Amino acid sequence: MKILFLFLAMVCSMPSFAAKWKAKHVVLIGLDGWGAYSVEKAEIPTIHNFMKSGSYTLKKRSVLPSSSAVNWASMFMGAGPELHGYTEWGSKTPELPSREISHYGIFPSIWGLFRDANPTAEVGFIYQWDGLAYLVEKEAINELVHATGKDVPSGQADEAVAMRAVSYIKEKKPAFVGIFFDEPDHVGHQKGHDTPEYYQKLKELDAYIAKIAEAVKEAGMWDDTIFILTADHGGIDKKHGGKTMQEMETAFIISGKGIKKNYCFEESMMQFDVASTIAYIFRLEQPQVWIGRPMKQVFK
């Protein structure tokens, strides 16, 4: 009995890597091609509820060009293309020499930074566009899932992303998970941005986000989770990559534990500030090569 008491005392005194975090879980949800211009027009009640229960800006700017790989890289890597070197829509390797290379072999991102500080934490990355796999430290992620739609009856890849995310959250209760839809970008290219088809796709994605939120509740994580919803770029007509605000401005919505409610912040935010804000939540020290700034004003 004495040995048992000593064991319990030792376990209770063990420091938890989560004790210092602002929340025990972060759920990062990205929608490719989701322009900020659409937020107030769209029928997206789940996203609107996250805005009411949290903080947001509709003026987060992409880096240039306003295309996918360069902006996802900037979002993850806390710096712009001048430093990380990914400069094009479909960059798989840096076109410019990365200013710094981590022990993972690429420019340091939030995924590797988190893993190095928390070797036993559960980390997930569930994505639709295969280009994202080249922008993260795969060895730093427990659950790396490329959802293609083959494992759902509808055959729709965005549904597959949502369903894999739901099951993963319920089963593993990850400390940090990224969930990335390759929509509404496809619809924007095929039918056009700011069209009825574009808004219908946003409505569908909102329903998937509702399922992800419900999974967080069912997993018992809700009270200790911070959600972040954002995008790589917007679009105009059937394209993106240019220098219009429709292409460059995207939403950043953050909601959950310790976040101010119904707060629209006015401070400038750039794509690379997303990584810095996540690092701030997890109390991670930024690499010197990062230039991002955490959005500290959103925290209570």
Rank of each mutant, 00 (worst) to 15 (best):
C12E: 08
H186M: 11
D130V: 12
V11W: 09
I209Y: 01
D32Y: 04
A19G: 11
S55C: 09
A73Q: 13
Y134F: 15
K20C: 01
H233F: 04
F282T: 04
K52I: 01
G33S: 02
K41G: 02
I254Y: 00
K211G: 03
M245Q: 14
K217A: 08
E285Q: 14
K257A: 08
M248P: 00
D158W: 12
G54K: 02
F282Y: 12
G105H: 00
R283F: 00
T225E: 05
L4S: 08
Y86R: 11
L113M: 13
V289C: 13
P196C: 11
P184N: 13
I169Q: 11
Y280H: 15
N71P: 09
P65F: 07
S154R: 04
P184K: 01
E247L: 06
D182L: 01
K60S: 13
A121R: 03
G35Y: 00
K20I: 10
W111N: 07
L202K: 08
I254A: 10
G54N: 03
G131V: 11
K172D: 05
T57L: 02
M270E: 14
P65R: 04
G80K: 12
A157T: 07
G33K: 09
M248V: 09
W129G: 05
P196S: 12
T225H: 02
F176D: 10
K24W: 06
L132F: 08
E95Y: 07
T93I: 14
K300Q: 14
M75K: 00
P45I: 02
D206T: 13
N49R: 15
A275I: 10
S66N: 12
V187A: 05
A18S: 14
D194R: 04
